[in-house]
Design a protein around this nucleic acid. Sequence first.
DNA 1: CTTCATGCAAAACATTTGCAAAAAG
DNA 2: CTTTTTGCAAATGTTTTGCATGAAG
Lengths: 146, 146
Amino acid sequence: MIDNSITTEIKKILTRYGLKATPQRIVVYFAMRELGHASADMVYQRASSELATLTVATVYNVLESFVEVGLLQRRMSSNNKMYMDVNTYNHCHLYCEETHTYKDYDDPELMLMIHNHFRNKKIRGFDLYRIDVQLVGRSSQSNRSK
Amino acid sequence: MIDNSITTEIKKILTRYGLKATPQRIVVYFAMRELGHASADMVYQRASSELATLTVATVYNVLESFVEVGLLQRRMSSNNKMYMDVNTYNHCHLYCEETHTYKDYDDPELMLMIHNHFRNKKIRGFDLYRIDVQLVGRSSQSNRSK
DNA sequence: CTTCATGCAAAACATTTGCAAAAAG
DNA sequence: CTTTTTGCAAATGTTTTGCATGAAG
């Protein structure tokens, strides 16, 4: 069960982003904060345990509305599935090719270096939004089985 | 129709990678060389115009076998679809969020810089295979319609 | 020959849609 | 009240599967 003070906090966040604070949106955002990075299905599992009447279609709607206002960020995957990131600031990720899980990898030095590298570069015919750096590999835990 | 000398060349490549040189594999690799980056469906469209009996299931099988031996690389997308890259050397990409198209972006200076940055870094609990840098944005052509 | 690859059709997934009913502000 | 949002159930699009047939080495 979601703590009352957390519900209140999430309501404020939703309102600040110009979204109506529906129970569905509250539990979805709550789930994303617990999960960090998650597929639609993972969100559905977690969020529907808080609000049993929640449907997948609504999860997709809600996630999309969050991405539109910039509350969540969509992530790339090699899994043919949609993944969301609760953190929208610019940061790197460790991406496990086996489990398709993400882990934040904060490396301000690297970020600064890359940012400087592109500071005065213009890319012809391309409007650059952000630079996405993924450290692709396998997390050791998932290495047990070959 | 595929040129005979190209067929011969592709057969050699397949054999070198330890794969039987079937007509299906030849046309799929031919298509990938023309397309550079492509979804399974794009490959199917292009390749089946060379070999009409080709089926989608075979395209998936063939692409998978190519990835396994390292002849192609799977790419991440935010499209919930599988994309392949004919170039397996380490390079950056421009990724258009609207059209979900990739463009190689060769920047040796950047690559070297990033490589040096990670040279002596160990990431606890993670076996790093490669660093994937995507310049995410919109290609100007696709900006016409808002 | 023997093993591996292909074609087929069905199944499995993930995501989207259209619309009526419900709820937020 | 008015405008969104939700739930439902069906549709869509992509990828996978199992298995009999065919082809490569």
